[in-house]
Computed example of a mutant assay.
Amino acid sequence: MEQQTLSAHEAEILAERACLAAGANHATARSLAKATVSAELFGRAGVGFPHLLDYLSSFRAGRINGYAEPQLTSPLPAIMHSDADGGIAQLGFDSAASTLVERTRELGVTLFTQRNSYTTGELGYYVRRLALEGLIAFAVSNSPAVVAGAPGGQGVFGTNPMAFAAPLADAIAPLVIDQASSATAFVNLAKAAEEGREIPAGWATDETGSMTTDATAALRGTLLAFGGTKGANVALMVECLAAGVSGASWSLDMPDFQKGERLIDAGMTIIAIQPTAIDADFATRLSRQLDRIADRGTYVPGRRPVQNDVSEADQVTIDTAVLEDIRRFL
């Protein structure tokens, strides 16, 4: 597949211009552009520029309030609650991030929870940013129901991802874990269908509830939770924390995030911890432990340099077809 390479600054400008043209205000466009490029550089490219197309279409269709003004309240000192006003999840988090970091350093543990947003994009983005501030962070979010708890069942959960990050001795290279409760992320299924590739057995069922390796048939059916019942239990726990705590819609009650005109009302909850409150040597101890684990043949995610802002040297490589689709919004 043909690709093009842009500097990270060029990519941010392109994403921001496309958001503005699609119906977002400057704050929303800037917030989403930064998150999109961050996903390309440091997270999961599939929820970078390819997923930006979902946002752009949703601005145009009214599934996202492009002029949202998130409302932040604090019912308790250690709890921050955001109503994203039907906008993007990233803007609500941006509005609260500095206060969240400050209170976590002061109180030791804080909780940020948000309702009434579009789907959260790359969940690792949020915890990665907090880890760069020296905090441990655990995040969960829900999305429209596309995942069945068992083969043959109906979709009851979103892909309901979870993400975790922790600071290490190298302060700019934290441990970062980001994974769905489903056997794969929805964007991976959609990409396989677009490219005409088969998917592994166990990822999804077709519209009759039968197991399938046909990605297009799977789009008409449901994804499956990873690990059978255990994965479904994890998806349920995520649902409780993401939608239950925040007051957002349950996945079953959400509209399709790619069709229609209704706002999604997704939920996200982040728990932030100041690890040095008890152990000033936490980052060094964890780094040594991860080294021991890696030496025994276990893959350890993350541990590569990341940053909150792009540099002159950063570049992103994007499929030409995706770039052409984005430029059509300009």
Rank of each mutant, 00 (worst) to 15 (best):
Q4E: 02
T5G: 02
A15H: 13
N25G: 10
R30S: 15
L32D: 00
A35N: 11
V37E: 06
A45M: 11
G46D: 12
F49Q: 08
L52I: 11
L52P: 08
D54Q: 10
S57R: 08
A61C: 08
Y67Q: 11
M80K: 11
S95K: 11
A96I: 00
A96K: 01
A97V: 11
A97C: 14
V101R: 15
V109H: 05
S117P: 02
E133H: 13
E133K: 04
I136T: 11
A137D: 04
A139G: 06
A139C: 12
A139R: 07
N142G: 14
S143A: 15
A148N: 07
G149M: 07
P151V: 03
G152E: 10
F164P: 06
A166N: 11
A169S: 12
P174H: 10
P174V: 15
T184G: 09
V187R: 05
A190T: 07
R197C: 05
R197T: 05
E207S: 12
G209P: 13
S210E: 15
M211V: 03
T212Y: 10
T212C: 10
T212L: 13
A215E: 05
A217K: 08
A217V: 07
T222C: 15
L223H: 03
G228P: 06
T229Y: 12
A232Y: 13
A232L: 09
N233W: 03
N233I: 09
A235G: 08
M237K: 02
E239R: 03
E239L: 02
C240E: 07
L241A: 11
A242C: 09
A243Q: 04
G244W: 00
V245G: 00
Q258W: 10
G267A: 12
M268A: 05
I270F: 02
T276H: 05
D281K: 03
R285M: 08
S287W: 14
R288P: 02
D291K: 15
A294S: 12
G297P: 09
G297K: 04
T298K: 01
Y299G: 04
G302C: 01
R304F: 15
N308D: 15
S311H: 02
A313N: 09
A313V: 06
T317M: 12
T320N: 08
L323C: 05
